[in-house]
Design a protein around this nucleic acid. Structure first.
Lengths: 215, 215
DNA sequence: GTCTATAAAAAGATAGAC
DNA sequence: GTCTATCTTTTTATAGAC
């Protein structure tokens, strides 16, 4: 992030453009199958010039992961601090997650497929941040059980069902067609909340409260 | 499958062993990031000997995809022909899908991540077979709506929810620990069927019928 | 800031000795 | 049936001219 001293203001702009390009190519062909030369060609730079902007190929992968995790964890933190019921928070978190998936679909492909190619500290740090996000989901699901919205079931398995449903969306979704993040979130949560519910679940009341936080 | 004439009976056995090894390595490091030399080293053969058994690296990928799709489509065909309600069939198909995921976890990693690296006809054929499986799921979900088990909703989105829930399981499941395919299938279907249901959904009655087909 | 040239290693695949 | 040697291409990354 911090740009090395001695570079002009255009440096960081071009750097971000290179990461954009890398994310696009990695998502299409996979990280390992994409060459540095190909990134250079696409962005219009020879290899030598490219390395003026990037540290290494792996570093590009790190930055792509951060572009996914940064907004996700920021949103999770804000939602946790709201004065709302856990089901409303889950519905808001669901929509944020799907929004990130819609807005950075190519990044998500790389995020889901190539994170295991990170090495050493890069891998460790990234896995810890992923866990952080999962912990937020878990705490909200447990709160929903404690407050009687959901049946008491194994929290781990409930987290995984919630995440399965959302995190596989990147495989087939086409932003701009048919459905948007809000609609998918409403649909997923309707299915999940009813399935998790203890008796019945007033979906309309949840949506009404969600709207007050989004206006 | 058909072994070239002029080879002994050990030929096919070793060939299958090589595919096993490739699936393991591809699942750990990714298809593109795994070298032919590495496969040879792991299986105990030099490159020259390895190519005595395989046609090309891509061909290994094709065979791994087939090892997933063959049992999946065979099971789907059998289940479709059963004399049972669509929800029972869905529950049986769910368990078969999860069974394949449990039994061939390394294959599933490759199946989910690296299928896009297939080229030409290999890619076309494989995508068609995937579609075939999805069509079976869709027809069962539509039948469940028509017969009043589920609310009438967009069939495409219902298929995708069903598949999201199941197909993301490979990311975190550890066979032999905690849960097995049957338990996960019961849990997923309980959530999904209740969420999809038109009014209420007699989960116990479904499980009782499922048991009659599995004894 | 961008280029060409080059290094140094590794890739997939083949030929031919044994 | 397995090996070594080789071919050809490509890889990530650097050096140094402009």
């Amino acid at each position: 992030m911090a740009r090395p001293p001695g570079h002009g203001p255009g440096y960081e702009i071009k750097r971000q453009e290179i990461i954009d390009t890398a994310a696009m190519l990695f998502s299409e062909k996979g990280y390992a199958a994409t060459g540095i030369t190909e990134i250079g060609d696409t962005v219009g730079l020879a290899k030598g010039a490219l390395y003026y902007y990037i540290k290494s190929k792996e570093n590009l992968l790190v930055e792509i992961q951060e572009r996914v995790l940064d907004p996700l964890l920021a949103a999770a933190g804000k939602i946790q601090d709201l004065d709302a019921s856990p089901v409303v928070k889950l519905r808001l978190l669901s929509e944020e997650l799907l929004t990130v998936i819609f807005e950075r679909l190519d990044h998500i492909w790389v995020y889901e497929h190539d994170y295991r190619q990170l090495t050493g500290d890069n891998l460790t740090r990234m896995l810890a941040r992923r866990q952080e996000f999962e912990n937020v989901v878990r705490s909200l699901l447990v709160a929903a059980m404690d407050e009687g919205f959901f049946r008491k079931t194994n929290p781990s398995l409930t987290v995984l069902q919630f995440l399965n449903m959302h995190n596989h969306t990147y495989q087939w979704v086409r932003p701009g067609q048919q459905w948007d993040a809000k609609f998918l979130s409403k649909t997923y949560c309707a299915t999940l909340f009813t399935g998790f519910a203890d008796g019945s679940c007033d979906l309309e009341a949840i949506e009404a409260q969600v709207a007050t936080f989004q206006s």
